[in-house]
Amino acid sequence: MITRRKFVVESCSACLGLLAVASGASLLAGCASVSEFQATVDNNTITVPLASIAEGEKIKVVRAKQLAYDILLVVGENKDYRALEMRCTHANNILSASNTGLFCNFHGSAFNLRGEVTNGPAMSPLKNFRTTEENNLITIHLK
Protein backbone atom coordinates (compact mmCIF):
# COMPACT_ATOMS: atom_id res chain seq x y z
CA MET A 1 0.00 0.00 0.00
CA ILE A 2 1.32 3.41 -0.94
CA THR A 3 1.93 5.80 1.93
CA ARG A 4 0.62 9.34 1.90
CA ARG A 5 4.18 10.68 1.98
CA LYS A 6 5.18 8.54 -0.97
CA PHE A 7 2.06 9.58 -2.88
CA VAL A 8 2.77 13.29 -2.33
CA VAL A 9 6.44 12.92 -3.29
CA GLU A 10 5.68 10.91 -6.42
CA SER A 11 2.82 13.19 -7.49
CA CYS A 12 4.94 16.29 -7.08
CA SER A 13 7.84 14.67 -8.91
CA ALA A 14 5.54 13.77 -11.80
CA CYS A 15 4.18 17.34 -11.96
CA LEU A 16 7.66 18.81 -11.89
CA GLY A 17 8.74 16.37 -14.57
CA LEU A 18 5.86 17.37 -16.83
CA LEU A 19 6.60 21.02 -16.24
CA ALA A 20 10.26 20.46 -17.06
CA VAL A 21 9.40 18.65 -20.32
CA ALA A 22 6.91 21.37 -21.33
CA SER A 23 9.38 24.08 -20.42
CA GLY A 24 12.20 22.35 -22.26
CA ALA A 25 10.11 22.05 -25.42
CA SER A 26 9.11 25.68 -25.15
CA LEU A 27 12.71 26.70 -24.54
CA LEU A 28 13.91 24.89 -27.64
CA ALA A 29 11.12 26.38 -29.71
CA GLY A 30 11.71 29.88 -28.48
CA CYS A 31 15.51 29.93 -28.39
CA ALA A 32 15.97 32.28 -31.31
CA SER A 33 18.04 35.38 -31.75
CA VAL A 34 16.79 38.84 -32.58
CA SER A 35 18.74 40.47 -35.34
CA GLU A 36 19.63 44.14 -35.30
CA PHE A 37 19.54 46.68 -38.04
CA GLN A 38 21.69 49.78 -37.68
CA ALA A 39 19.84 52.76 -39.07
CA THR A 40 20.11 56.51 -39.16
CA VAL A 41 17.41 59.07 -38.59
CA ASP A 42 16.87 61.25 -41.60
CA ASN A 43 14.20 63.94 -41.58
CA ASN A 44 12.39 62.16 -38.74
CA THR A 45 12.20 58.91 -40.64
CA ILE A 46 14.11 55.65 -40.63
CA THR A 47 14.26 53.36 -43.62
CA VAL A 48 14.80 49.64 -43.44
CA PRO A 49 15.40 47.65 -46.66
CA LEU A 50 13.04 44.73 -47.08
CA ALA A 51 16.07 42.67 -48.06
CA SER A 52 17.41 42.99 -44.51
CA ILE A 53 14.49 40.93 -43.21
CA ALA A 54 15.13 37.24 -43.61
CA GLU A 55 12.43 34.85 -44.72
CA GLY A 56 10.35 33.87 -41.69
CA GLU A 57 11.86 36.59 -39.51
CA LYS A 58 9.17 37.88 -37.18
CA ILE A 59 10.91 40.69 -35.33
CA LYS A 60 13.92 42.91 -35.88
CA VAL A 61 15.51 45.47 -33.60
CA VAL A 62 16.10 48.77 -35.37
CA ARG A 63 18.80 50.82 -33.71
CA ALA A 64 19.71 54.42 -34.43
CA LYS A 65 22.27 56.52 -32.59
CA GLN A 66 19.95 59.50 -32.55
CA LEU A 67 17.25 57.61 -30.64
CA ALA A 68 17.37 56.88 -26.94
CA TYR A 69 15.40 53.65 -27.39
CA ASP A 70 15.46 50.93 -30.02
CA ILE A 71 12.46 50.27 -32.22
CA LEU A 72 11.08 46.77 -32.63
CA LEU A 73 9.97 46.15 -36.19
CA VAL A 74 7.30 43.45 -36.17
CA VAL A 75 6.49 41.56 -39.35
CA GLY A 76 2.79 40.74 -39.51
CA GLU A 77 1.25 37.63 -41.01
CA ASN A 78 0.21 39.61 -44.09
CA LYS A 79 3.65 41.19 -44.44
CA ASP A 80 2.38 44.31 -42.77
CA TYR A 81 4.83 46.08 -40.50
CA ARG A 82 4.54 47.53 -37.04
CA ALA A 83 7.22 49.69 -35.38
CA LEU A 84 7.10 49.70 -31.59
CA GLU A 85 9.25 51.85 -29.37
CA MET A 86 11.10 49.61 -26.90
CA ARG A 87 10.41 51.85 -23.95
CA CYS A 88 8.18 50.76 -21.10
CA THR A 89 5.30 53.20 -20.73
CA HIS A 90 5.39 52.79 -16.95
CA ALA A 91 8.86 54.01 -15.95
CA ASN A 92 10.65 54.36 -19.28
CA ASN A 93 12.87 51.32 -18.83
CA ILE A 94 14.44 49.50 -21.78
CA LEU A 95 12.28 46.59 -22.91
CA SER A 96 13.46 43.11 -23.75
CA ALA A 97 11.97 41.50 -26.86
CA SER A 98 11.15 37.94 -27.82
CA ASN A 99 9.09 36.39 -30.59
CA THR A 100 5.98 36.63 -28.44
CA GLY A 101 6.22 40.05 -26.85
CA LEU A 102 8.14 42.70 -25.00
CA PHE A 103 8.96 42.60 -21.30
CA CYS A 104 10.11 45.08 -18.70
CA ASN A 105 12.27 43.92 -15.83
CA PHE A 106 11.78 46.95 -13.64
CA HIS A 107 8.26 46.22 -12.50
CA GLY A 108 7.10 43.31 -14.64
CA SER A 109 5.07 45.00 -17.36
CA ALA A 110 4.54 42.98 -20.53
CA PHE A 111 3.28 43.88 -24.00
CA ASN A 112 2.28 41.79 -26.98
CA LEU A 113 3.65 42.31 -30.48
CA ARG A 114 0.84 44.77 -31.18
CA GLY A 115 2.17 46.92 -28.35
CA GLU A 116 -0.84 46.30 -26.10
CA VAL A 117 -0.37 45.84 -22.38
CA THR A 118 -0.73 42.22 -21.36
CA ASN A 119 0.53 42.64 -17.81
CA GLY A 120 0.70 45.74 -15.62
CA PRO A 121 1.68 47.97 -14.00
CA ALA A 122 2.02 49.73 -17.38
CA MET A 123 -1.31 51.21 -18.37
CA SER A 124 -0.60 52.62 -21.82
CA PRO A 125 0.30 50.74 -24.97
CA LEU A 126 3.70 51.15 -26.54
CA LYS A 127 4.35 54.00 -28.93
CA ASN A 128 3.50 52.63 -32.34
CA PHE A 129 5.21 54.51 -35.16
CA ARG A 130 3.50 54.72 -38.53
CA THR A 131 5.14 52.65 -41.24
CA THR A 132 4.90 52.75 -45.00
CA GLU A 133 6.34 50.46 -47.66
CA GLU A 134 7.60 51.63 -51.00
CA ASN A 135 10.35 50.58 -53.43
CA ASN A 136 11.34 47.63 -51.24
CA LEU A 137 11.92 49.95 -48.30
CA ILE A 138 10.01 50.12 -45.03
CA THR A 139 9.86 53.67 -43.76
CA ILE A 140 9.28 54.31 -40.05
CA HIS A 141 7.82 57.75 -39.46
CA LEU A 142 8.99 59.10 -36.12
CA LYS A 143 6.63 62.07 -36.19
Partner: peptide, 24 residues
Protein backbone atom coordinates in the same frame (compact mmCIF):
# COMPACT_ATOMS: atom_id res chain seq x y z
CA UNK B 1 5.22 64.61 -17.43
CA UNK B 2 6.49 62.01 -19.82
CA UNK B 3 3.79 61.02 -22.23
CA UNK B 4 3.87 58.68 -25.19
CA UNK B 5 4.31 61.77 -27.32
CA UNK B 6 7.71 62.31 -25.74
CA UNK B 7 8.89 59.13 -27.32
CA UNK B 8 11.48 60.77 -29.47
CA UNK B 9 12.73 62.10 -26.12
CA UNK B 10 16.33 62.82 -25.49
CA UNK B 11 17.59 61.44 -28.73
CA UNK B 12 15.97 64.21 -30.73
CA UNK B 13 15.43 66.59 -27.85
CA UNK B 14 18.76 68.09 -26.78
CA UNK B 15 17.42 69.42 -23.48
CA UNK B 16 16.30 65.91 -22.50
CA UNK B 17 14.81 67.14 -19.21
CA UNK B 18 11.98 65.04 -17.96
CA UNK B 19 10.42 64.39 -14.60
CA UNK B 20 8.70 61.09 -13.97
CA UNK B 21 6.07 61.06 -11.24
CA UNK B 22 4.41 57.85 -10.23
CA UNK B 23 3.32 55.92 -7.19
CA UNK B 24 1.40 53.07 -5.68
Amino acid sequence: FLTPEDSLNAGLNPSGRNVILSGY
